[in-house]
Design a protein around this nucleic acid. Structure first.
Lengths: 236, 236
DNA sequence: CGTCCCTTTGATTTATGTCAAATTCGGTGG
DNA sequence: CCACCGAATTTGACATAAATCAAAGGGACG
């Protein structure tokens, strides 16, 4: 299913995504990853599991290219998408202090995922005393962000949910180019709907509505946001 | 506003709520709290703040008697009730690794709150090596529970939200007495509504509906659940 | 080129919010 | 102790956003 591809097994220093990458920010060039096998880059086809809910937690995962969805499966088997992740981001920050994954991560497209040995980080947290606290701080921020968005989601209309979602994607991927951006929605509409707590039809209709309002142009998975500030104003 | 009442300043060993109390479970009788001022019991009138969002985090708080709501205030000033807490429970487990409170805690009625010096716990975490990890585990459980309930809230009807809420209250307070329970809703309907993401009118209507279905009897703040398993079945 | 799946669009239903009025309850003071 | 007041709750009528049901396009892929 997944293949460990040697061409990608290289240190952070050589990684093209370095300047966007949390791993680099955390580790910097303090570790010669090339010499060790602390870091492995794995090539995943679409729809493949990076890790599974319940799996033993042995690595941190960073998205190097492609995109990933983070899914929580409830007791009754219902699935809820917690978040989407893009290059430079850590997948599933929350479970750090657990011994197992509380969610699954599934690729949305061909993706390269950087695996970073958690054992090493924990064993060396004195040597890199700021490392763990930095990571925890980020973890906290993600939890809080998600918590707040979950809290507010009930009170928001479909328009606002989708608008906020789009603006968030633009911000996270630094796509804002003088008030417009083109982004590729690598996930199906149904996934967006699930994430936002809406029906897929509503997502579709709302996108059409935004287009009629002149805020964006849609063509299947590609979306061109024409007026980001207008969209921001519309949703706030 | 709040009064530190000496009569309540006593060790866990003497506390009547001991067998329900997390603090005791965590600390046991390993600390002579009477001799130190690690533990203080504070008497709060209704509607008073146990702590405030943004306050420096210096103590853990346990509910000894009464009840408390945990409230998050958003940037736009909107308030969202995160949870309710009852005797034996810890208030605001989440912020342990923060240096300040991320929510406020407000009493719903006359309440006695046990304050436990966090500084002491952190300074002595080697001496009581299991203490911190126990606490973290509980903290995790609460986060996860809240997270899951937040995740599902969107997909649930008003009936299910309220039903789950009631069953949860019964479980947490061990009120189930051969398939029935009487509980006192110490919080106003508006608070329940806020917590569940509903309008107060909907809460009221749903309670009436449950009554018509013969699942419970309401009389203002007191509710007698006649058929817990029926209610459980109804909401699942 | 045809099939299948995803997406869009349309018509209808429904749950819940909103607005408004009636009722109950708790507390206060005469 | 009772009467009154205000606040909380309940109940009713109505509006509406979004879900659901249904069908029709549109791409991707064999």
């Amino acid at each position: 299913m997944l293949t460990i591809s040697d061409p990608f097994l290289r240190s952070c220093c050589e990684c093209g995504k370095r300047k966007y990458c949390l791993a680099d920010d955390l580790i910097g060039n303090r570790i010669n990853a090339q010499k060790s096998n602390l870091i492995q880059n794995v090539n995943h086809p679409p729809e493949s599991y990076v890790f599974n809910q319940g799996d033993l937690l042995k690595n941190l995962f960073f998205v190097k290219s492609g995109s990933v969805k983070n899914v929580y499966t409830g007791e009754n088997g219902d699935q809820q998408i917690i978040n989407f992740h893009f290059p430079g981001e850590t997948i599933g920050l929350l479970p750090l202090r657990h011994s197992y994954h509380s969610t699954s991560a599934i690729t949305l497209e061909n993706s390269i995922i950087c695996m970073f040995s958690l054992e090493f980080i924990l064993a060396n947290c004195e040597r890199f005393e700021d490392l763990l606290s930095k990571f925890l701080a980020r973890s906290e921020a993600e939890i809080r962000h998600r918590h707040e968005s979950l809290l507010s989601i009930n009170h928001l209309t479909a328009d606002k949910r989708l608008g906020i979602f789009l603006v968030d994607l633009i911000d996270r991927q630094n796509l804002n180019q003088n008030n417009s951006a083109s982004l590729r929605l690598t996930m199906p509409r149904a996934d967006i709907a699930n994430y936002l707590g809406l029906a897929p039809e509503t997502v579709s209709r709302t996108l059409s509505k935004f287009q009629k309002l002149g805020l964006l142009l849609t063509s299947k998975k590609n979306i061109r946001i024409i007026d980001i500030s207008g969209l921001t104003k519309f949703v706030s």
